[in-house]
Design a protein around this nucleic acid. Structure first.
Length: 848
RNA sequence: GGAUGUUUAGCUCAGUUGGGAGAGCAUCGCCUUUACACGGCGGGGGUCAGGGGUUCGAGCCCCUUAACAUCCACCA
């Protein structure tokens, strides 16, 4: 017996462990077709947030739905070592203990990092369990597992041998706090307030000077030239001359290149090849030197004279003061400009000239553009992906960290020769590269490396390519695109068939959830308050694909109320079964119209829901189910069925009970992917059930058909009579006297239902023309309310109805008189409109 | 500068090849009716951002304007 109230805590109790222990999460049934997904591996840096909850719920809904549809579902779990993020956290923890990673050394530090990993992996497992995710833990992976590491080395070596990985000195984004290189996409640009400094650069052998403006005076020690535009009339005569660098009194050649924008600043630009990518390009073009004025701590280097060792910002201030003292400062302008910040440490990144490892992107990107068959949902994200691929730069993959996959490159101590090897080289003449690889280098192999690749394992053969990948749009560049090009390069196939993209979750005001704003919401708190099913339902319904959603507490509460509604309707059905209940075989054609009607609606609903589930349109699917549950089932049929259940016809009672069970069973199965815990609880309470809902099959739509328009008329009449009472300030149970004029006698129970729902004291059925009281014309039938109704009221109602019908008739006629419509529209649509027109015309003539 | 998205009821949002504008919350009225007061029944509230076009018919398709948001690329 179910409790009177739906209690999420009680319902959730024990179910996850039960499912897991039964092995329902484990894939491998070879008699079925495979459906495979890999989880986007969360970072082992902290606890999961609402974004993870959303992402994993979408996958879990898919997995549970597909399982019920008869697939062998593999949903592979795992976690990401998250190089920079984790190392930063571990270092922060050590700092609080007063130690740095250098105090510990590489090996000891890595031990600490592994400790951290184990601790946080435990948290993540607990959260996955709370969310109810049907993950196949027998296949769980971690990006630093030996088999994944082997895949990483294999990929590195193969790309290196093909010339697609190279080591070179280029301008990269450097994070001075974490002391590592970053890739371009790990840099976030913000509008920062800054200053634009205008300095005098005296011309050698002349009294003239050139005004050069810069936002970064501290890099002046690395200047090698001043550039102007060759077409700039102001400076034409200076090209080829020399200017004095006011920072260090060195002579700089004045050179010309089209790159310089005449309009911007003073039209004269200082060139610092080692600290600016554009200047670096100029230095390549003109073979200029590339002096570095900063070291790896972002402190000023040897070439900076008295500023050596100074912090970059302190140097800026001091240098400007010095130049001002020298009388060479013209002005300082306040500006707002875009400044790059490290995605992880949030410090201002420093473009630096460093020797790093790169993936040569052009050939890989072109291949991806040409051969990718990934089907993005919604499709517009395909453009996002393609656009990025078309403009991608080479990918800097080396990181000056310890936590990660060590670069499998070895250098000959004498010759400096590079040896790349998948196996460890123990030859004492060789020393391994100190750096590790970008985390995303290994994540990019996730869909196939987790299945055993590069070995042709049975899992790899069966579950690759994956059926689906689900992720938020913010990591299409970081992850999705890289999986696609690596997969095409190494497996010759796209990594997954479909890629379902969802949005980001925001707070109730639409702001991003962030630690600094303190507006983050812990999924666990939500679960404690409303239950995990309500959270899951909230996250995956009521929004459009690819859109962001806001967390709104009231909506989770509403979800919980909906589940409570289902709970209570099921409880009622179960309680109304009685001792003697036995399911019976019934023939649809022999049922009463009310039963036919609800079964037709049920099957329409199943068809719609199943269709949308299949397209990953969970919002639409849930919407159809919701309307069915509230309107068709709870408000209408459930109430109507009480007439039979409280009546004397024992035989038909059992048919109604059978149908009620069939309906709630279908509802439970359809709500199950969204809300598995309550669904399992309700399912177990059904008179006939398997060991678990997880091994059930999804309801199948039956093709029932019949004319049930009388049932619809009945409902319409009930609605109008209720409305009539409210607008006339009559009590809901006020007993009206009704007359129903009808050509044919409506179905047997028509009167009973009408009476029960409207408290009518008397209903007269007649086939003769009648005309008294308030009139509601439905074409087939006309309803009259015989009561103390004023003339004006009647006239008003009549005028309203006539106006409505006339406008509808006009609409129908407009359509039907259009040869294009009749010729092109679907036949059913045309017929439907003809039918409607006929009915409207009849009703209008009834009124007049 | 380029791209994408958003603009629909007081608020938050749905709206499936173009074919009678919806939900939740809020609000108002009635109802302690034996599944559910985490409820029932009913109501009010929208020129679907503005303009133009295609069409018999546009929230939906095309063009355009505006506001907001996001992403990419950026000038020292």
């Amino acid at each position: 017996m179910l409790d009177k109230r739906y209690d999420p805590k009680k319902v959730e109790q024990g179910k996850y462990d039960f499912w897991k222990s039964k092995g329902y999460f484990t894939a491998g049934d070879k008699t079925k077709n495979p459906f495979s997904m890999v989880i986007p591996p969360p970072n082992v840096t902290g606890k999961l947030h609402l974004g993870h909850a959303w992402n994993t719920t979408v996958q879990d809904i898919t997995a549970r739905y597909k399982k019920l549809k008869g697939y062998d579902v593999l949903w592979l779990p795992g976690m990401d070592h998250a190089g920079i993020a984790t190392q930063a956290k571990v270092e922060e923890k050590l700092r609080k203990e007063g130690i740095s990673r250098y105090d510990l050394g590489r090996e000891k530090f890595l031990e600490k990092a592994w400790e951290w990993k184990h601790e946080y992996a435990k948290n993540i497992h607990e959260q996955w369990a709370k969310m109810g995710l049907m993950l196949d833990y027998t296949r769980e992976r971690f990006t630093l597992d030996e088999n994944l590491s082997r895949a990483v080395r294999h990929v590195f070596k193969t790309l290196y041998d093909k010339g697609l990985i190279y080591r070179g000195e280029r301008i990269i984004n450097y994070d001075p706090e974490l002391k590592t290189a970053l890739s371009n996409i790990e840099v976030e640009y913000f509008d920062d307030p800054g200053k634009f400094y205008y300095f005098k650069y005296p011309i050698v052998g002349s009294k003239e000077y050139l005004t050069v403006a810069t936002t970064r005076p501290e890099t002046m020690f690395g200047d090698v030239a001043v550039f102007v535009n060759p077409n700039d009339k102001r400076y034409k005569h200076l090209i080829g001359q020399k200017a004095i660098n006011p920072a260090n009194e060195e002579e700089l050649p004045i050179m010309a290149d089209e790159y310089v924008d005449i309009e911007f600043g003073t039209g004269a630009m200082k060139c610092t090849p080692a600290h600016d990518p554009n200047d670096f390009a100029l230095s390549e073009k003109y073979h200029l030197a590339r002096p570095k004025c900063m070291d790896l701590d972002a402190k000023m280097s040897d070439i900076c004279g008295k500023y050596k060792g100074m912090d970059r910002y302190e140097c800026r201030e001091a240098l400007v003061k010095q130049i001002e003292k020298d009388g060479r400062l013209i002005k300082i302008e306040d500006i707002v400009h875009q400044v790059g910040h490290s995605e992880r440490s949030h410090t201002v990144v420093e473009p630096m000239l460093l020797k790093q490892w790169f993936v040569k992107m052009r050939p890989l990107a072109d291949q991806a553009l040409e051969k990718s068959s990934v089907n993005f949902v919604p499709t517009r994200f395909n453009h996002t992906f393609r656009q990025w691929m078309e403009n991608v730069d080479d990918w800097c993959i080396s990181r000056q960290l310890w936590w990660g996959h060590r670069i499998p490159a070895y250098y000959n101590k004498q010759t400096g020769e590079i040896l790349v090897s998948e196996e460890e080289i123990t030859d004492p003449n060789y020393v391994q590269d100190e750096d590790v690889l970008d985390t995303w280098f290994s994540s990019a192999l996730w869909p196939f490396a987790t299945l055993g690749w590069p070995e042709e394992t049975p899992d790899f053969k069966r579950y690759f390519p994956n059926s689906l990948l689900v992720t938020a749009y913010d990591i299409i560049f970081f992850w999705v695109s890289r999986m696609i090009f690596d997969s095409l390069e190494f497996t010759k196939e796209s990594p997954f068939k479909d890629c379902l993209i969802h949005g980001l979750i925001r707070d109730s005001k639409g702001r991003k959830m962030s630690k600094s704003l303190g507006n983050g919401i812990d999924p666990i708190d939500v679960i404690d308050k409303y239950g995990v099913d309500a959270l899951r339902y909230f996250l995956t319904t009521g929004s459009a694909p690819g859109q962001d959603i806001r967390y709104i507490d009231e909506k989770v509460a509403a979800s919980s109320n909906y589940l409570n509604k289902i709970w209570n309707s099921v409880r009622y059905v179960l309680e109304s079964l009685g001792e003697s209940y036995k399911p019976v075989d019934y023939k649809f054609n022999e049922l009463a119209p009310v039963e036919k009607h609800i079964l037709i609606r049920l099957n329409e609903t199943i068809k719609a829901v199943d269709g949308y589930m299949n397209k990953y349109e969970y919002s639409m699917a849930s919407n159809y189910l919701y309307n069915f549950v509230y309107d068709d089932f709870c408000s209408n049929y459930l109430e109507m069925s009480k007439v039979t259940l409280q009546g004397e016809n024992e035989e038909y009672k059992n048919i109604v009970r059978t149908i009620l069970i069939e309906i709630v069973r279908s509802i439970i199965l359809m709500i199950y992917p969204f809300a598995p815990f309550i669904a399992e609880e309700l399912y177990q309470a059904l008179p006939e059930h398997k060991e678990s809902i997880m091994i059930e099959t999804y309801p199948e739509a039956k093709k029932y058909q019949d004319d049930v328009s009388e049932v619809e008329l009945l409902m319409k009449m009930i609605g109008e009579l209720r409305n009539y009472k409210v607008t006339n300030k009559l009590a809901p149970n006020y007993a009206l006297k009704l007359v129903v004029e009808s050509e044919n006698q409506p179905f047997d129970e028509f009167e009973t239902y009408l009476k029960r729902f409207t408290f009518a004291k008397e209903i007269v059925f007649t086939s003769k023309h009648y005309d008294k009281g308030m009139k509601y014309a439905y074409g087939k039938m006309t309803l009259y309310i015989e009561d103390e109704i004023s003339k004006e009221e009647l006239e008003e109602k009549r005028a309203r109805d006539i106006a409505f019908l006339e406008s509808e008739i006009k609409r129908c006629e407009g359509m039907l008189n259009n040869p294009n419509f009749v010729a092109r529209a679907p036949k059913e649509k045309v017929e439907l409109e003809q039918k409607k027109l006929e009915e409207f015309k009849k009703r209008l003539s009834d009124l007049k």
